[in-house]
């Protein structure tokens, strides 16, 4: 029996720990106030005081990146939790009831696949004006069908197991069985999916903020830092590098962690890859 953890899991966990750690640290400490401007100290080179220098408004880059990490994690967490719980509930419900209700719910969920997060965010922004909460809603929305599908698929397998049939024969309520027997058994699959969707959510938040549909000034966001840096490419190209590296680190971290978790929770899948 090989007890060694998969490489992707280890690398992913380290990257995630790094990003989450920095995000948590920014709650209590950043080198400077990330929004503090200092026009005379703009485009400063890296120094003792400003490790990565300052931007066009003299704000400390490291502090901004740290605050952006916190915002990014928050958005992803809220969006995945929100969309995930609705999706899981729908999936469990569909699986428990079965028949045409199950078909209907899944058809409805499939509809969600026609709307990429960006289109949904565009609609919300057009009606309510752009804001971070709209971005969260849009990302949460696209998570609903994904989780509904995964949950239903895994739950349907559990329903066929003997002890579940026994509970049903004993007259237990379908929804109680869903909560007490089905959910704990499919938790691993859901957690794996959530980890992967976390990575997708980080990427989506960055894109939405880059396009102006997400975090609004003065809130810090990797995506928004990049859209500002793009206009300054000739003056300060370094500003367009750091936020991108942060996004990759976070997305890669959660992606690898998700892959790794799947590998250890379902060895059958990993062997195929």
């Amino acid at each position: 029996m090989n007890r060694r953890l998969p490489t992707n899991l280890v690398i992913g966990a380290v990257l995630v720990a790094l990003v989450v750690g920095v995000a948590a640290l920014s709650l209590v400490w950043t080198p400077h106030d990330p929004t503090l401007m200092n026009i005379r100290g703009k485009f400063a080179d890296p120094s003792e005081a400003h490790w990565l220098g300052t931007d066009q408004l003299g704000r400390d880059v490291v502090s901004q990146l740290m605050a952006a990490a916190r915002n990014s994690m928050t958005v992803a967490l809220v969006a995945v939790l929100l969309g995930g719980s609705i999706g899981v509930a729908l999936g469990l419900f569909a699986s428990a009831v079965g028949g045409w209700v199950e078909d209907g719910v899944m058809r409805l969920a499939d509809l969600g696949f026609a709307f990429p997060a960006l289109l949904f965010a565009i609609m919300l922004a057009a009606v309510f004006g752009p804001s971070l909460s709209n971005a969260v809603l849009a990302i949460a929305f696209i998570n609903i069908p994904i989780f509904a599908r995964v949950t239903r698929g895994s739950a349907n397998q559990i329903w066929t197991l003997d002890y579940v049939s026994a509970s049903r024969a004993a007259g237990m309520n379908k929804f109680v069985i869903s909560r007490d027997h089905i959910l704990p058994n499919i938790a691993a699959a859901i957690i794996v999916q959530a980890t992967i969707e976390f990575a997708v959510a980080i990427l989506a938040e960055a894109a939405l903020s880059y396009l102006g549909l997400g975090a609004q000034p003065p809130a810090s966001s990797w995506g928004r830092m990049l859209s500002e840096a793009q206009t300054l490419m000739y003056l300060a190209p370094q500003l367009a590098i750091y936020p991108g590296l942060c996004i990759i680190t976070a997305v890669l971290g959660f992606g690898l962690l998700g892959d790794g978790l799947r590998d250890i929770s379902d060895p059958r899948l990993s062997r195929q890859r």
Binding site: L226, Q230, Y234, P237, A240, G244, L252
Partner: peptide, 22 residues
């Protein structure tokens, strides 16, 4: 491809512009 999945398209674009245009 693992890296490619993690790279935001807009950042890759910015990098390409910085290299090939700027």
């Amino acid at each position: 491809s693992q890296l490619g999945i993690a790279i935001p398209a807009f950042w890759l674009s910015i990098l390409l512009v910085m290299l090939f245009a700027v």
